[in-house]
Nucleic acid binder design. Structure first.
Length: 560
RNA sequence: UGGGGCGUGGUGCAAUGGUAGCACAGCGGACUUUGGAUCCGUUAACGGAGGUUCGAACCCUCCCGCCCCAGCCA
């Protein structure tokens, strides 16, 4: 954790409310997801805000599912959402609520509105309602059903509930102002007929309240003090105020903030669902997804995500955060905690000609130079090794520290080796094996003569290494803002976002590594054991590569 | 051409009438048995024009740009 307590305009407001005793010293927030998809990192921002604020000011934060649309929601999503919030490290105690728990009360509120002459049953079709609503610049017209008697409205609404009418045939509308410059105030629909089975209430209801009606009243019922939501609900606030005032109930304070956007991805449950359903990714928890379950599978830690959320702050400006900032936070977190191991992703055979035939040594390797308390381990070394194909070049460019004909490098924790011979495939010319000599005096990777060996390579002993599959991930989209390209965002899904390497070799200490455990593959990046792993088949996901200044130099040179 | 919002380095966030700062990215260097990490240095911003004021990123006016709203979605 970075340590410092965040400060932003919302916390300023809360501090002021506490000072003036606006809510009797209470701070009570809520995180209100609709269970129609998996949570993404944009939700993490909201979760960190709502739970964080409550914690900081000695208040409470409820978890409430806004489950008013049974056609899109499911218990699977409810469970996934709970899992992700817990994983992030937040606790809603016994305050797990559902808007559907309030359906009866909400119905009573609607009846109360009807009795006050503030709501009516409207028989206009969906298309007609749209036509009657007017446009952004022209006022709407009043529905011919607007002035039904209270008795008739009461009767019709009761019969809507009783199931006498088909879907879409009637709605209950608030009677506000068809000429309001705020379109949301032009007699909005508050109940619709939906003969659909709800994941919690089953077939008890065939009418369901709309979000605008439900949300503000649910907040009111729960005694929420600060109802934090995203900017697009700013226009809805006037409507919420109207409901609350007409009903004369407790009035929470809504404060809007900008939602999180990240470069090279999308932050919309609807669109993420499209990627899942369209087979562009392997599921909601695909490691390329910005979902919390995807990030978890990828190897992101809750701490990294929370630190990230603390860093980006909370404001009212629409913004797009560079995904590199997120990557910075995983690296920062994993650097401290991930044990170092050696893994060769694209193996190249290296034979040490002067190494005693059949000899095997165990070299000592530190588990984490950042944290000596993590100890050391033994790694087997022998005369036949694998190194990374990319660590050898026959005709190296300027500044090359790694292996090349005649060049000496250090094998991490082991010995210096010098390349003496390059063996190629006669057909293809591809380098298939390297021969080297080693310096027995350099055991441990050091000599007393002060010889300068700049390059250090990772390696595995061919006879001892374990085979593994490694999945490399790249950005989900090829452009920073896929939704703002003018044409279909699907055209910008990165076709190379997943690369599966099946011939990897990893050091034997990785045997039995548990899914979810994090490692730094020396010089390569941070990797996480995938749940697809099983006995005899290790599968790793690359969480994020290490910063690679050499690659950056190469790239810069190529650009010139 | 209605209404509601928002404009600070490349990106994100501060400074709330008194020296424009932090983080990431970038660039340069030191160190290094990870071309990692770490450390040091450095480039770079108040959308524009007026006004108020001794003094404006901050207050006022106008202009410009961007976002949201016309679901029986949330």
């Amino acid at each position: 954790m970075t340590g410092s307590t965040p400060s932003d305009f919302i916390r300023d407001i809360i501090r002021e409310d506490l000072r003036t005793n606006k809510y009797g010293g209470r701070v009570h927030t809520r995180f209100p997801p609709e269970p129609n998809g998996y949570l993404h990192i944009g939700h993490a921002k909201s979760i960190c805000l709502n739970f964080g604020v409550a914690e900081e000011f000695g208040g409470l934060c409820n978890l409430r599912f806004d489950d008013t649309n049974p056609t899109k929601e499911s218990a699977e999503y409810v469970e996934a959402i709970k899992r992700d919030i817990k994983w992030l490290g937040f606790d809603w105690g016994d305050r797990e609520y559902y808007a559907s728990d309030y359906f009866e009360k909400l119905y009573d509120y609607a009846v109360q509105l009807i009795k006050a002459g503030k709501a009516y049953v409207c028989d206009l079709s969906q298309e007609e309602i749209r036509e009657y609503r007017g446009t952004l610049t022209e006022p709407g017209r009043e529905s011919p059903y607007r002035n039904r008697s209270v008795e008739e409205n009461l009767d019709l609404f009761a019969r809507m509930r009783a199931g006498e009418f088909p879907d879409g045939s009637r709605v209950l509308r608030a009677k506000i102002d068809m000429a309001s410059p705020n379109v949301l105030m032009r007699d909005p629909v508050i109940y619709r007929i939906l003969h659909a089975t709800h994941h919690r209430t089953g077939d008890k209801w065939c009418i369901y309240p709309m979000y605008d009606f439900t949300h503000c009243l649910s907040d009111s019922i729960e005694g929420i003090t600060h109802s934090l939501c995203t900017l697009e609900f700013e226009n809805n606030r006037e409507l919420y105020d109207w409901f609350l005032d007409q009903l004369g109930v407790y009035h929470p304070q809504q404060i809007e903030f900008a939602r999180l956007n990240l470069t090279y991805t999308v932050m919309s449950k609807r669109i993420l669902k499209q990627l899942v359903d369209g087979g562009y990714v392997r599921g909601w928890d695909d490691p390329r997804m910005p979902t919390l379950s995807g990030l978890r599978r990828r190897g992101y830690t809750p701490e990294a995500i929370r630190n990230f959320c603390d860093t980006i702050g909370v404001a009212r400006t629409n913004s797009v955060v560079d995904i590199e900032l997120l990557e910075h936070h995983v690296r920062e977190d994993l650097n401290k905690r991930a044990p170092r191991v050696m893994a060769v992703l694209r193996p190249l055979r290296l034979v040490i000609d002067n190494y005693p035939e059949g000899q095997v040594e165990e070299v000592e390797a530190e588990n984490n130079p950042e944290d000596p308390s993590m100890g050391t381990r033994k790694v087997p070394f022998s005369g036949v090794l694998y190194i990374e194909q990319g660590d050898f070049q026959e005709n190296p460019p300027k500044g090359w520290f790694r292996l090349a004909p005649g060049q000496e490098v250090r094998l991490k924790h082991a010995y210096y080796v010098k390349c003496t011979q390059v063996i190629k495939d006669e057909q293809t010319g591809e380098v298939i094996e390297l021969h080297c000599t080693y310096d027995p005096e350099s055991r441990g990777g050091w000599t007393s003569d002060g010889r300068k060996v700049k390059g250090t390579l990772h390696w595995v002993s061919a006879a001892h290494a374990l085979p593994a599959e490694v999945r490399l991930y790249d950005r989900l989209f090829t452009v920073p803002n896929p939704l703002e390209q003018g044409d279909n965002f699907l055209n910008y899904v990165n076709p190379n976002s997943l690369e599966v390497l099946t011939a990897c070799q990893v050091e034997p200490s990785l045997a039995g590594a548990k899914p979810g455990s994090h490692y730094q593959f020396l010089r390569l990046g941070y990797f996480c054991v995938d749940p697809d792993s099983c006995d005899g088949k290790l599968v790793f996901n690359r969480t994020v590569s290490l910063r690679d200044t050499w690659a950056k130099m190469q790239k810069a040179q190529q650009a010139e």
